Computed example of a mutant assay.
Amino acid sequence: MELGKCQEILSLRKREHSMEILVVGGTKYFGIPMVQKLIEQGHKITLATRQTTQDCFGGHVKRVKIERTNPASLKNAFSGRTFDVVIDKLGYCSNDIKYMMEAVRSEKYIHMSSTAVYQPKVIDTREELFDGYHKELVWCNRSDFPYDEIKRQAECALWQEYRDRKRIAVRYPFVTSKDDYTKRLLFYIEHAIKGMPMHIDNLDSRMSLIHAKEAGEFLAYLVDKDFEGAINGCSDNTVSIREILDYVETKTGKKSIISSSGEAAPYNGEPDHSINTDKAKKLGYLFSNLNDWLWDLVDYCIDITSMNVR
């Protein structure tokens, strides 16, 4: 078949499977590769944000300005509109879920949850470890509870109150990459190289991570999948803080200073755990191995830190 004809057929198939997708958030961090993948898949995308961050998507998306925690703002923005899928990256608490669900009509709602809902995470953490169907639902705002509890309450609202549409809760551990605005991983490398004491309470705990690119692309992967429920996303394999610091010492000769009087490290409190992704694998999505990208990222952190101390 001629190349031009093949391209025409592929373009037609893409249009036939095109969906109207509302992305709440999506202009920062792993929202960027998520939207880029949705564009690549040929979907019609509307970005709902506060419009305080300029995005890089040009004419490939429509845009609407909202205040995520204001129910009147959401109703004004979405009155009379229906979407095939809503991807809500900014739903933190039960009231967030309520405001969005009551403002927007959709067939499917994908909620950006977190592995923080697990109490606690364990080796081979599976989705069934947290049951949002039977935990008491408390209508709350973001400041009412610590992060882990408001995310649990968001899922409680999702599962218990809105059974009229397909719902997915995607649970990720810590997300990281070169453009990680939290700089959590960078904290350890900087403190080690600069000789700054760190208080670390889980030096040998096995921990799970996911790369920002995969975190975004997996969300996009789910929009047309016949699935409902909670689902984990995570790179294969685990790592300990000790392994990272030993690697830094081998590369730089700088030995970390671990002290109870040092600055508290950002991954403190994380228990020994791993995240099971069998559900994602059954859907056909295979996550990368942590070791395929983590050490290149640590090298990058070493390089940028070393440049700053010269």
Rank of each mutant, 00 (worst) to 15 (best):
Q7K: 14
D299A: 07
M101P: 03
E102R: 04
K14G: 05
G216T: 05
L245T: 07
D201T: 10
S114L: 03
G229L: 00
S73T: 06
Y147H: 06
V35T: 12
Q160V: 00
F218A: 10
D144N: 11
N289Q: 06
L297F: 01
P71E: 08
S143G: 15
D55Y: 05
K254S: 10
R167E: 02
K279C: 07
C234W: 03
Y188R: 04
H199I: 08
D180N: 13
V24M: 03
K251Y: 05
F57I: 07
T250S: 15
G25F: 00
N276T: 08
T176K: 12
G80I: 01
G26H: 02
I210S: 03
D164G: 09
G284Y: 06
A192N: 10
S94E: 02
V170G: 05
N232F: 04
V223N: 00
K5T: 11
S73V: 07
P146Q: 09
V138S: 10
C156W: 04
E20R: 12
H111V: 08
D144A: 08
R15I: 14
K108H: 12
E2F: 13
S79H: 13
T27N: 02
V117Q: 04
A169E: 00
D84C: 11
D236A: 14
S261E: 15
H134C: 01
